[in-house]
Design a binder for these strands. Structure first.
Lengths: 362, 362
DNA sequence: ACGAATAGGGAAAACGCTTACTACGGTCAC
DNA sequence: GTGACCGTAGTAAGCGTTTTCCCTATTCGT
């Protein structure tokens, strides 16, 4: 119950506590014989340094915090792994916190990590457009900044204005553009955009890329082909069932993420439709699930783990190559790439006329 | 860079620092008017308490640490989620650390969490039989115990002897017994036990259950039908390929976990064998992957998240129902259950004679 | 051989908070 | 009226490190 302190060690070794500290931290010359005595005392007492006292006394805290929705979700887990690895590589402790998707919880966790005097707080995942919420985050970013720490936004847009944050982005819009273009190139004209909360930054970016691709190819952007919703498997399943029942016309589905794609594929299967024979499906994120699905899912890959690493490097001010002259790098962007698997083919000839008619409607 | 302190707040509010502390902690009566002034000062200065100073000054630390192999692995992730949720429910901060499977890293992390004065350190996952390593863990368990903290072993056997640890187990052996029995009941006589490092506690327990089931049914325990190896998909794939090429005779595979099962199924598929038509396959763990496989995998379910929760309850000494008289509960055991899906059927008639011959060989 | 630089080590002041104690008006009961 | 209480608030002693001075022998350059 009573932990041995540095003073105990000092007493046993017959030296002052300052010397013990020096032995431990190796930041000051200590005679070999003294060092040996002190080390013996440490072992004998089973002395374990008190990280709090240490942090209090000024030695840097050496902690990085990361806030995610859920450890189970591979999207977050991969980023968390990147953060964890880079943090340990930098000799830092990594604290992973989960919000369960609650905004209040998220704000509370930022405060908590601030209280822990974390060197950096990494906030992961898209954000809802919510003025009040953004203000709250901004306030905390400022507070953190004022304490010499940093709030890193990972996978969400900057809060805007003069809020002192650093940002790690991925080319969300570009990936959506690329995969939509892939679909179009295969001959698809009516593509269903499925899932993603309407006011969610991630959805907005993906939808923008999708739309840009359509427009570039001179295709109609039909409102009824955009079906926002949760990023869940269940939503993908249910909405596709409904649309099929309604007789909606489309030859391909661009699901807002792989989960939704999985649900969609399930619905198609239970409706007796084959993928990609009757319907092409693509997703986004390239989580492991994408490779489990049959057919394997064509999707957009995000270097998630790399994003996590970048986030801590950025936060810690470790220049990431490129421009050594810039004073403080404040944002990074990683690329996305489409990975072609088996869930896309040309639309069925039968469906083609419908599709053409629809495309020509503009 | 310079965080406001309690003293700053006190000065601004025109009170003593003790009063500020009382306002914050609500553990002592403070006049309403004073409270208001202090709270205003806190907001004005953007004061954020220093968790380290607080921990140092004696207020309990309120931190729980968990050490796992990898956040990506659902087996660990689910347990981590349970720990995380229960810890927050108990008003504790949860620190998740990953070892990447390295023993040294694991020991270092126990020390780190001890330095953080965590209320509990939860060590997750099976352990290798390694005398020196066990000693090291034991030493740390004692150190932790001496500081009033607890080392909780989650999913691994007790270190033995008088080492002060708490243990959360799952009925590993029982699950293996049940699923093997399931296979036998379906008519299988030659079952391949695939994967799992030989000296790994998890493997040992699963193999024991497997063996017990065989013996109970009077079946031969053939050494050549036990193929230990890594708990990886790749191993499952490769070893099954090899065995098939060698012409090994078996009608069912009991993979040491779902990953291995997935690999095995892939090998069977690429060899032109159908599951369960030509070969039955079962796994262990019931991670999400099991439901993605086609056919869906029959496997053993472990209440992973629940284990995580139990671990922190146990560590924090929160009696878990049952016996209110026992002074300190020191171990819990959760049950396992087999979940029957689509990967098992009766063996092919053709294979039956071989199987009988083999079974009769004893 | 002499002043100076250097290695080795101690004393004590932070670090920011919690928490006994102590103190001081009022109320209340008798 | 007086002592016991109660509600408030301040004083100050830690909590366990790190770190800045400061001091004492050596050792070294010339």
């Amino acid at each position: 119950m009573t932990e041995a302190t540095i003073a105990d060690v000092a007493r046993l070794a017959g030296v002052s506590s300052a010397t013990v500290s020096r032995v431990i931290n190796r930041n000051y010359p200590v005679a070999e014989s003294t060092r040996a005595r002190v080390e013996a005392a440490i072992v004998e007492l089973g002395y374990v340094a008190n990280a709090h006292a240490r942090a209090l006394a000024g030695a840097t805290n050496r902690t990085v915090g990361i806030i995610i929705n859920d450890v189970i979700d591979p999207f977050y887990a991969f980023i968390a792994r990147g953060v964890e690895r880079e943090a340990t590589a930098q000799g830092r402790l990594c604290i992973i916190c989960c919000t369960q998707g609650s905004h209040e919880q998220e704000l509370a966790l930022i405060d908590l990590l601030h209280e822990q005097r974390a060197d950096a707080v990494i906030l992961v995942g898209g954000a809802y457009e919510d003025r009040a919420y953004a203000t709250q985050v901004g306030r905390r970013a400022r507070a953190l900044h004022a304490s010499g720490s940093t709030l890193v936004l990972c996978g969400r847009p900057s809060v805007g204005g003069d809020v002192p944050t650093k940002v790690v982005e991925y080319d969300n819009e570009g990936g959506a553009f690329a995969i939509t273009d892939h679909l179009i190139t295969q001959g698809h004209r009516r593509i269903l955009f499925l899932g993603g909360p309407a006011l969610f930054s991630t959805t907005v970016a993906r939808l923008a890329g999708h739309r840009r691709a359509l427009e570039l190819r001179g295709l109609d952007f039909a409102d009824d082909l955009v079906q926002p919703g949760p990023l869940s498997r269940r939503f993908g399943y249910e909405r596709v069932r409904e649309l099929l029942a309604e007789g909606a016309v489309f030859t391909a589905i661009f699901a807002a993420n792989d989960n939704v794609a999985a649900g969609a594929m399930q619905a198609l299967e239970s409706a007796g439709l084959t993928v990609p024979g009757d319907m092409s499906v693509v997703g986004y994120d390239d989580v492991p699930l994408a490779q489990e699905l049959r057919p394997r899912l064509t999707t957009v890959r995000i270097p998630l783990e790399e994003m996590g690493r970048q986030a801590v490097r950025l936060a810690l001010g470790i220049a990431d190559g490129s421009d050594y002259l810039s004073p403080v790098q404040t944002s990074t962007r990683v690329g996305t790439s489409i990975v072609v698997r088996e869930s896309v083919s040309a639309p069925k000839p039968l469906a083609a006329p419908q599709a053409r008619k629809a495309a020509g409607r503009r």
